[in-house]
Design a protein around this nucleic acid. Sequence first.
DNA 1: GCCATTTGACCGTG
DNA 2: CACGGTCAAATGGC
Length: 221
Amino acid sequence: MTEKVRVCEKTGLEGPQDDGYSWRKYGQKDILGAKYPRGYYKCTFQKTQGCSALKQVQRTELDSSIFNVTYIGRHSCVEGSDSSPGKPLPIKPEAAQLSETSISFQTSCYNQVVKEEKELGNRKELDSFPSVKVENCFFETTSTDSSSTYISIPTTSESNYKFEGNSGEHNSSSNSADSHDSKIILSPLAHVNSAVDDYPMALDSCWDWDFLVDYNPPNFI
DNA sequence: GCCATTTGACCGTG
DNA sequence: CACGGTCAAATGGC
């Protein structure tokens, strides 16, 4: 269960993105080949509620205003109990609730959506993966190793890609969430636009999301 | 005093 | 042995 979200913050916001959950930093590490260190965060409620969600935040080298945020695990905590009313919950990361998804996207120049799935034990896989609609040019498959692969897709009129790959099916018994067996599934569906409406807010309030991504969490299908 | 962050040490894996 | 991830003591802010 991994979700990677590449966010672009250009509104002057600083620091780790607030994704609606509260995180406690527990480590930071310089990553080989990466310009910026990677920060390791745990859900604040790990202690109190045993929430096992983690996230990793790393600044992109190309554009230091872009962060790669990797969500690992799902929140078992009751979120919202503490979310102060005044404070907007930016991306309600439904995706983070999904057990195994990885989304990464960026702004402006291209849209990227990648779903990466990692096996982890018999975690029940969602009946369906969230489908994502991507409109143009780039996909980035953020694989587990540090090198990301960019798949450039010629801008054809249709944005109907289905990219599916998986390396090694694990079965329910193999626990330990092999961090290196990742399944990447890209299945942009039909259209774009519109979906943005599904995201309550924050899409425009926090970051600059001038792209169109339609992301349908399974629960909504 | 509590809680979050920092930071070096430690550990597991390849 | 190198690298990535986590732990835990020290530190600082509220």
